[in-house]
């Protein structure tokens, strides 16, 4: 009798668990049944917010539920990253992982509350390459000219960046280190457009710019681009830093999508699939290109490896150029 009751218990439990698993997978199979929040780590109006809103259109189509972009700006992307990492892993909160919040911040800020293993990556969607530029009437025609000049006249040249810890600063610092500890002083500004204005007004001599902020003035021949951080198809005439003799200077800003760790398998696969399709969708890629973002799809595995590799680079620049964020 006792034996039988025990067996009934076990049977009941098994059935119960089975039903639960079934229900759970049924829920996962139905996913999504309500709008999905997409967390953007930067303010409305910035290029990342714009890219997110472009993707959200296609993602909504593929997933059959609205994907709503929510801006949670602050602390160089760290507030949004912490929010995503801590969100309920049910597939209704996803968001951006970027070279800022999940790269530079992790490398240079000592007290970060999240790590990259808290995220389930869904793929990389784009890259901002950096372009080193000077005013059109500046005397330097090549990167080498500029480096020579800086060596002979230490402390004369100034460069602008869009803030401490930004890709625009780190790329320039890496260049300075690589070219032999050049003394080009750093003037931080608050945004990309501000440095462009400062360059055109002659208040700074150079800087490494994201393409979206300088494309218009480059097309109008108001600035000269000396080097690019990676090869760019549309700009065949401009050398990369590597071609100019500084192979290490290949920094970019990169952007991908992630969900919090612990997502049910089915939901994860659905999201990865939707992201892969969106990030390779020709119309979405065309729109990215229009706003100055280079479409650059990486699978979650490739992206993860790339991110870890970059963190090492940021740590090195940070320690050699003495940059910390705390």
């Amino acid at each position: 009798m006792k034996q039988k009751r025990k067996r009934m218990w076990i049977l009941g439990l098994t059935v119960g668990i089975g039903v639960l698993i079934y229900l759970n997978s049924a829920i996962a199979a139905d996913y999504p049944t309500k709008p999905i929040e997409y967390i953007c780590p930067f303010g409305a109006g910035g290029p990342t917010s714009l890219a997110n809103r472009i993707m959200a259109e296609k993602l909504s189509q593929l997933l059959g539920q609205p994907v709503v972009v929510i801006n949670k700006p602050g602390a160089g992307g760290a507030i949004a990253a912490a929010f995503i990492a801590r969100a309920k892993p049910d597939g209704y909160t996803i968001g951006d992982v970027t070279s800022a919040g999940n790269g530079v911040t992790l490398a240079l800020r000592p007290d970060v509350t999240y790590k990259n293993s808290d995220f389930e990556l869904l793929g990389q969607y784009g890259t901002h390459f950096l372009a080193m530029a000077v005013k059109e009437d500046a005397p330097w025609k090549t990167v080498r000219d500029l480096a020579e000049y800086a060596k002979k006249n230490p402390g004369v040249l100034k460069y602008g960046s869009s803030g401490v810890g930004s890709a625009t600063q780190l790329c320039m610092e890496l260049f300075k280190l690589t070219a032999g500890k050049l003394a080009i002083d750093h003037i931080p500004f608050k945004s990309g457009p501000e440095i462009t204005a400062a360059l055109l007004g002659g208040h700074i001599h150079t800087g490494t710019f994201t393409w979206g902020t300088v494309k218009a003035v480059y097309d109008a021949k108001k600035i000269r681009v000396l080097a690019l951080s990676i090869p760019v198809e549309e700009l065949p005439g401009i050398p990369t830093f590597a071609q100019a003799g500084y192979p290490e200077v290949n920094l970019t800003a990169y952007y991908g999508t992630a969900a919090p760790k612990g997502l049910p398998r089915e939901i994860l696969n659905k999201l990865r699939d939707a992201c892969a399709k969106t990030f390779q969708d020709p119309k979405t890629r065309e729109a990215f290109r229009n706003i100055g973002l280079t479409p650059d799809y990486k699978t979650p595995e490739e992206f993860s490896k790339f991110m870890e590799d970059r963190i090492m680079v940021y740590k090195r620049i940070g320690s050699e150029a003495n940059i910390t964020l705390d």
Binding site: V217, N290, I291, G292
Partner: peptide, 11 residues
């Protein structure tokens, strides 16, 4: 920009 129009000197 989304529509491929770049505001600026050439606009």
């Amino acid at each position: 920009l989304i529509h491929g129009v770049t505001p600026g000197p050439l606009m």
